Amino acid sequence: GSSGLPPGWQSYLSPQGRRYYVNTTTNETTWERPSSS
């Protein structure tokens, strides 16, 4: 899909309704949208 996220990243919603991002390669999580640069 065209999520616009860098490879390996997925976006999720927290129980509070906030969006966060997870790097499935490194298990890093961040509130900031990852850049593909």
Rank of each mutant, 00 (worst) to 15 (best):
13 L>S: 04
32 E>K: 11
2 S>H: 13
19 R>Y: 15
15 P>A: 09
14 S>V: 03
32 E>W: 09
15 P>K: 09
36 S>F: 14
34 P>L: 02
20 Y>T: 02
25 T>Q: 13
19 R>P: 15
35 S>M: 14
31 W>V: 05
19 R>G: 02
10 Q>V: 15
5 L>W: 04
11 S>Q: 09
3 S>F: 14
26 T>H: 02
16 Q>E: 15
30 T>Q: 10
29 T>I: 15
4 G>I: 09
29 T>V: 15
27 N>H: 12
18 R>V: 15
36 S>K: 09
15 P>D: 10
23 N>P: 00
19 R>L: 15
22 V>A: 03
11 S>R: 02
22 V>Y: 13
9 W>D: 00
27 N>D: 07
33 R>M: 10
24 T>Q: 09
37 S>T: 13
6 P>W: 05
32 E>T: 11
29 T>M: 15
4 G>T: 11
30 T>A: 06
2 S>Y: 10
18 R>Q: 15
27 N>T: 04
26 T>D: 02
26 T>Q: 02
2 S>A: 14
32 E>S: 08
27 N>S: 08
15 P>E: 12
6 P>T: 04
15 P>G: 06
21 Y>E: 00
19 R>N: 06
35 S>Q: 12
4 G>M: 11
24 T>I: 13
2 S>E: 13
6 P>G: 04
37 S>L: 12
6 P>Y: 04
3 S>V: 12
25 T>R: 10
37 S>A: 12
25 T>Y: 15
15 P>T: 08
5 L>E: 10
34 P>H: 01
20 Y>G: 03
9 W>E: 00
32 E>G: 04
3 S>R: 09
37 S>W: 11
26 T>P: 00
28 E>T: 07
14 S>Y: 01
31 W>K: 03
30 T>W: 07
9 W>N: 01
8 G>D: 08
36 S>T: 12
4 G>H: 11
23 N>K: 03
1 G>K: 04
33 R>T: 06
7 P>S: 08
22 V>H: 09
23 N>T: 00
9 W>H: 01
32 E>R: 09
17 G>E: 02
12 Y>T: 04
17 G>W: 02
5 L>D: 06
10 Q>S: 10
8 G>L: 04
19 R>V: 15
26 T>I: 04
28 E>M: 06
19 R>F: 12
36 S>Q: 11
14 S>F: 01
35 S>H: 12
24 T>L: 14
15 P>I: 06
20 Y>L: 05
19 R>I: 15
28 E>K: 06
24 T>A: 10
28 E>I: 07
11 S>T: 13
30 T>S: 10
8 G>Y: 07
12 Y>A: 08
35 S>G: 14
9 W>A: 00
19 R>A: 08
28 E>Y: 07
12 Y>G: 06
12 Y>P: 01
23 N>D: 05
36 S>H: 13
34 P>Y: 01
17 G>Q: 03
24 T>P: 07
28 E>R: 05
24 T>H: 11
12 Y>S: 04
8 G>P: 09
15 P>V: 07
24 T>N: 08
28 E>W: 05
22 V>D: 00
11 S>L: 07
22 V>E: 02
28 E>F: 08
7 P>K: 07
24 T>W: 10
16 Q>L: 09
7 P>L: 09
27 N>W: 11
36 S>W: 15
17 G>H: 02
26 T>F: 03
37 S>P: 14
7 P>G: 06
36 S>I: 14
31 W>G: 03
3 S>L: 14
34 P>M: 02
22 V>S: 03
15 P>S: 09
32 E>L: 12
19 R>Q: 08
15 P>Q: 07
15 P>Y: 05
26 T>L: 05
10 Q>E: 14
7 P>F: 08
36 S>V: 13
35 S>L: 11
7 P>H: 10
35 S>K: 10
21 Y>R: 00
8 G>R: 03
9 W>Y: 03
36 S>R: 07
26 T>V: 02
31 W>I: 05
13 L>P: 02
13 L>E: 06
18 R>F: 12
6 P>R: 04
21 Y>K: 00
18 R>M: 13
26 T>N: 06
27 N>R: 09
7 P>N: 08
31 W>H: 06
14 S>E: 04
16 Q>W: 08
23 N>A: 00
35 S>N: 12
10 Q>D: 09
20 Y>E: 03
11 S>E: 15
22 V>F: 09
4 G>D: 14
5 L>F: 03
5 L>I: 06
33 R>Y: 12
9 W>V: 02
17 G>F: 03
7 P>V: 09
13 L>A: 03
22 V>I: 11
31 W>R: 04
1 G>Y: 09
25 T>P: 01
37 S>V: 14
12 Y>M: 09
22 V>L: 09
1 G>M: 12
27 N>A: 08
24 T>M: 11
3 S>T: 14
20 Y>Q: 02
32 E>P: 01
27 N>E: 06
27 N>P: 01
17 G>L: 03
23 N>Y: 06
16 Q>P: 02
20 Y>W: 06
8 G>I: 03
6 P>A: 05
21 Y>N: 00
33 R>A: 08
6 P>H: 04
26 T>Y: 02
